[in-house]
């Protein structure tokens, strides 16, 4: 499976009336999850998050692509 680089957020049972809402919903959740953490704690949280999501995706081909893209330009 190749990696999806188009906007792809949605939530079951939720109806959106503007195109920007799903991505903004996710982004707010992400930032709120880090609230009141130290920088070090945030770094750990991010690492755990990546591992959780990677396992969920599972397909190593897709992950390889994501890993490669994430490194580009860093």
């Amino acid at each position: 499976m190749s990696i999806n680089l188009n906007p792809n957020f949605s939530e079951a049972g939720k109806r959106y009336f503007s195109a920007y809402s799903p991505a903004d919903d996710f982004y707010e959740l992400l930032i709120n999850t880090h609230r009141d953490l130290t920088d070090e704690q945030s770094e750990l949280l991010n690492a755990r998050l990546i591992l959780l999501l990677a396992n969920h995706i599972g397909d190593i081909g897709t992950l390889r692509e994501a890993l490669k893209l994430s490194r580009e330009g860093v």
């Binding site: 680089l5 188009n6 195109a19 982004y27 920088d39 991010n46």
Partner: peptide
């Protein structure tokens, strides 16, 4: 916060080449 800034900059840097980053 620092992590929030990092995420923002990450989104901006992905926006150049990827539609999901722009969103």
């Amino acid at each position: 916060s620092r992590v929030s800034r990092t995420f923002r900059n990450a989104a901006l840097s992905l926006a150049k080449n990827h539609a999901f980053g722009r969103a």
